[in-house]
Design a protein around this nucleic acid. Structure first.
Lengths: 223, 223
DNA sequence: GTGCAGCATATTGTATACCGCTCCCACTGG
DNA sequence: CCAGTGGGAGCGGTATACAATATGCTGCAC
């Protein structure tokens, strides 16, 4: 999908994540098309993608609604992520090459630099973090695992605004990545899997605490 | 998606599975539209779905090709399936209700009847087997797990023609289902997971043996 | 007053025309 | 004979018009 379709996807996704489109709200293809400045055709493509990623729910009669995310959805997504990313780490430990290992180290070094900075840039942290997980997924060399995990990671973004990124949290992530690297360089799959599973589950609880703290409040608005 | 779109999906999928569309062959939306008697629009929808299910691969320039399945794809799909279905069984053991348990028993009883018949009807076996796994997935109550597994199960159909369904194989499946039921009625998640993982992995090896036996031969044609 | 029927409207599904890109092949120049 | 380039055909992306279907409202009958 090229420009119009991607643009519609990004625009609608943004409207959902920002709360501009409230959970449960009905979506009309035509209205979205107008809002995005494209025709219904690319909007329909975008809606299919968003439906796959569970940002959108469809009624029996094929009408689209913004998905309503609950605590149980958070649990559901993270439980699966923990299992799948753990599995990816195990496979990666047996397959990772020197270049990938070096890239992982570089990204984690950049994360440490960010943490040490007077004012850590969370967005930059998230980007390096994302790349670390992407490299591991690539090293795992399983197209279907990549596909399933890709969807789940996309979904996790819904709760990102709930997360509080204090320095301690970032530092813990860095340490866990370090241990992961140790497991990789020793090709210890079981170790890598255990670390990764713990890494994701810790993140889950951080999200959940933050989510519950702001519970009852407005719909996941970016604070 | 309604009639035209579903019809296009089923038709294209059928052409791929039957070998009428050879692995690696390029697909033209217009040609498929003509072949299905619909316009390009529903064909495009169908291609998106088939791409998600990895029946179709797309080039950088968005041209569509029939996916080429290798032994490593079989391994990839079944390794994930074993893990995810195992996980589903574990969750189901903690959540399954009496009605679902009863339905599972009924389907497995029907499977036993089929096996005992003079000429077991493999299609009927497959249908009951499918329903058993569907009920367990439903009992697992994880939308994301269901979504990921749904894709993988669809994909497994590619190798179905390779499978030889002798009576011994069917009988083993029946026995494993019986054990699964025992684990469920005792709400023993760990047991259920172990049985299910073994169940899928055994099926994997059966597929692989059959696949390798007919290796080099024609393209997965229905014998 | 309530319930059902039928119509108006909103929304999605499908067909088709047009546009721009990509790929392939033939032609030309070295 | 080979490489590079230009052009044409094929293909996917998008817009738009039209068809089918669901929904909700209004009015009528009981």
């Amino acid at each position: 999908m090229s420009r119009a379709s991607d643009h519609a996807y990004a625009a609608i996704r943004g409207m959902i994540l920002s709360g501009q489109l409230a959970p449960g709200a009905q979506l009309s293809e035509e209205a979205l098309a107008d809002a995005c400045g494209v025709s219904r055709t690319p909007v329909r493509d975008a809606l299919r993608r968003l439906e796959n990623e569970m940002f959108i729910r469809r009624s029996e009669s094929q009408r689209s609604f913004v998905a309503e995310w609950s605590l149980s959805d958070l649990e559901d997504a993270f439980e699966l992520r923990a299992m799948l990313e753990g599995h990816a780490a195990r496979r990666a430990a047996a397959r990772i090459n020197a270049l990938q290992l070096e890239q992982l180290k570089a990204h984690n070094r950049r994360i440490q630099e960010e943490i040490s900075a007077r004012q850590p840039d969370v967005l930059r942290f998230l980007e390096h973090n994302r790349l670390i997980h992407a490299i591991i997924l690539e090293a795992a060399a399983s197209p279907r695992l990549a596909s399933s995990l890709g969807m789940l990671v996309e979904q996790s973004v819904v709760w990102r605004t709930a997360q509080q990124y204090d320095r301690e949290n970032l530092q813990r992530s860095h340490h866990e990545h370090e241990e992961l690297l140790a497991a990789f360089s020793r090709a210890d799959g079981a170790w890598a899997e255990a670390i990764m599973t713990a890494h994701i589950r810790r993140a889950f609880h951080a999200y959940r605490d933050a989510y519950q703290a702001q519970l009852g409040g407005s719909q996941l608005s970016a604070a």
